[in-house]
Amino acid sequence: MMIEFVNYALNGALLGLLYALVAMGFVVIYRASKVFNMAVGEMLVLGAFLVWWAVAASAMHPAVGIAAALAISVLVGLAIERLLFRRLIGESVFSMIMVTIGLLILMRGLVLLIWGPQERPFPAIISLTPIIIGDMIVPRPLAAGGLIAVVCAAGLHWFFNRSRTGLAMSAVAEDHQIALAMGISVRRSIAFAWALGGVLSVITSMVYLSGKSLTFLSSEIGFAALPVALLAGLESIAGLLLAGLIVGIVQGLTAAYIDPLIGGNAASVVPYLFMLVVLVVRPTGMFGWKRIERV
C-alpha cells in the first residue's frame, strides 16, 4: 500500500518535472523578451518532427541527427524573430502576444503541410527499459527528463540572474524602452530568446515522445504545462521545478486514488483547477515578479 503511494507520487513528480521542462519554453522567451509565447506546444511538435525527420526518416546517426535538429530549430527561432518580432519592437507587448497566437496556427499548418496528419513512431532516443528500484518502477524517459529539467533549470537560473548577458536580457523583459536606452539590443535579446526556445523544444520533445507516437496533436502538452508556468510565475525558472512537482504529484495521486472513486478523469482537470485558483489568489504566481506600486 505504502509502496504504491510512493510509486504514484514519484511518477507524478517526474511527470511534473516534464511539465516544468515544457513550461521552461514559456519562461525562457518571457524572460528575454516579455512576450508570452502561446505557440510553445507547436514549437515542441516542430522540434519533434525535426528529430523524427533526422533520426528516423533520414536514418542519420542519432547524435548527428539530434545536432542537426538542434541547429535547424535555432535557425527557425532566429527566423521567427527576423520575420515577425523585429518589426514589432516599440509596439505594445500585447500585439506581440497576438502574433504568437498567429504563429501557433501557422506552425500547425506548416507541420500538417510538410509531414501530414498521420501518426509516426518517434524513435526511442532515450531507452525505454524502466528503472526498477526495489518495488518501484520508473520509466526511464521520465527519469531522464526529470534530470534534464533540473539541469536546465539550474543553468538557465544562473544565466538569467547572474550572468551579465542574461541580466541584460532580463532588463528587456522588464521594459523594452529602458533596455534600449541602456544600449541593450532588444532585437538580439528577442532573437536569442526564440533560438533558446527552439533548442528547448527539441530537448523536451525527445524526453516527452521517446518511444511514443508523434502527430501534430502532440502539441497539447503545451497547454498541459500552462498551469505549471502560471503557478511558478512567468519570471521564475527555478520556481518551475517546485511548481512542476506540486502539480505533478497532485495529478498523479488524483489519478490513482480519486479517479477510480468517481469513475471519471479528474486528474486531467486538477492542474487547471490549480491554475484558476492561482490566477484568482495570486496572479503573479509563487515566484513571479509582483507588480510594484509605490504610493
Partner: peptide
C-alpha cells in the same frame, strides 16, 4: 526608470553590460 524587480546591484550590473 529603474528596473523595478531587480536589486540595486543588478540594475548597476546591467548598466555595465
Amino acid at each position: 526608470r529603474v528596473l523595478p524587480h531587480m536589486t540595486v546591484a543588478q540594475n548597476l550590473i546591467i548598466g555595465g553590460h
